[in-house]
Each structure stands twice: as structure tokens, then as C-alpha cells.
Computed example of a mutant assay.
Amino acid sequence: MKKLILTAMAVATFGFMSAQEEGIRFGAKAGLNIASITGDDTDDLDSRTSLHIGAVAEIPISEKFAFQPELLYSAQGAKQDIGGDDLVLALDYLNLPLMAKYYVAEGFSLQAGPQVGFLLSSKVKLDGDSVDAEGVNDIDFGLNFGLGYQLDMGLFFDGRYNLGLSNINDEGDSDNQNGVIQFSVGYKF
């Protein structure tokens, strides 16, 4: 089921790009994640510092507006101090952000859009040991807000916040969401 949804989303998002419209730019990006989990019983949790990496496409709609679908591997989760050791909940996703961009000045953009994430793995790590985490939803929905700056040569910088909208727990009564601050650098060809 997960593969079918992922395939359908990728085809829907990137399939229309084969028209070879002038102005469409493809690229890659990578950067820092500062991930957290919010909601019930999260007072003792700290953010997990990790990374994201993936592909982007920018499709101009007008002089000021563009659509930017992305496909990103994103390491998320949280950590907790247990007697001086970090207990880490490592949630790794394949995220598909669908960003609307508005250029307010030359190279400078405001960005917003929905995101769907597909869980790749969920682990609990402590002192070098790792076990599978149980009860994590396979799909995560969020809403992204951000800023970006792009140089004429194709180099770009983004800052973004992903507000989790769906409960990441598949079991129990707890209601928890992902929250991720992302800083990216990338290049569009």
C-alpha cells in the first residue's frame, strides 16, 4: 500500500514535467533538521539534530509565482536524557513537500505548502543499541512555511518549518505530531 501511494504521488507530481516547458529547473538540496515531537507527554523530550537530502523542481507559473515539488529523505524524531545517555526516537521519512513560492524581491521568496511523509524506519536507540519502534503511523501529514533566497547561478538557501498535522502514533491514546525546522542549501540546474 505504501509503495502504491508513493508511486501515485510521484507520478502525479513529476509526470506533467515531461512537457519540457521552458523555465523548469531541477536541482538537489541538503541540510540540517532540528526535529521535535509535540503533543501529549512531550515535556521531557529534546530536539533531534539530523539531516535531509533530496531533489527539487521549480515550475514557474508567472513572474512572481512558482510551484516547487520536492522529494526528500528526512531524519526526524526526538531524544530524551536518561541518566546522562540520550534515548533517541529516530523516525526516517520520505517526504513530498508541494511548495507554492511567491517572489517578493529579486531572488527572495516566501514559501508555503502541504507535505505528505512516508515512514521508512522507526528506531529507538540507546547507548549504541537499536530496536524497532512500535506503533508509529506509516503516513504523516504536515504544512510547511518558509523563506528562500536564490542566486542567478542556481545556488539557493532555504529556511523552513514543518508543522505536523497528523498523529504519529498508531496505537494508544497519545496525540503527538512531528515538528521540524530545516535549513537547506541547494543548486538548481
Rank of each mutant, 00 (worst) to 15 (best):
M1V: 11
K2Y: 12
I5N: 05
L6E: 14
L6A: 11
A8W: 05
V11N: 02
A12Y: 02
G15T: 03
F16H: 08
Q20G: 14
E22D: 15
G23A: 12
I24W: 11
I24Y: 09
I24F: 06
R25L: 13
G27H: 10
A30K: 10
I34T: 10
S36K: 05
I37Q: 04
T42M: 07
D43L: 05
D43G: 06
D43I: 06
D44Q: 13
S47A: 13
R48F: 08
T49R: 08
I53Y: 10
I59R: 12
I59Y: 13
P60W: 08
F65V: 10
Q68R: 15
E70Q: 11
E70A: 03
A75C: 01
A75T: 02
Q76C: 00
G77W: 03
G77L: 04
A78F: 05
D81Y: 08
D81R: 12
D85H: 07
D86P: 04
L87I: 01
V88N: 01
A90N: 15
D92C: 04
D92N: 15
Y93D: 07
V104M: 09
E106A: 14
G107D: 05
G107M: 02
S109A: 12
Q111S: 11
Q115I: 00
V116K: 02
V116T: 06
S122T: 03
L126I: 09
V131H: 07
D132P: 04
A133T: 03
E134C: 08
D138R: 14
F141C: 10
G142E: 00
G142V: 06
L147K: 00
L147C: 01
G148P: 03
L151H: 14
L155W: 07
L155N: 07
F157C: 04
N162A: 09
N169Q: 15
D170Q: 12
E171S: 15
G172P: 10
D175G: 03
N176G: 03
N176F: 02
Q177T: 13
N178G: 02
V180M: 01
S184L: 10
S184R: 05
G186Q: 09
G186Y: 11
F189L: 14
F189C: 08
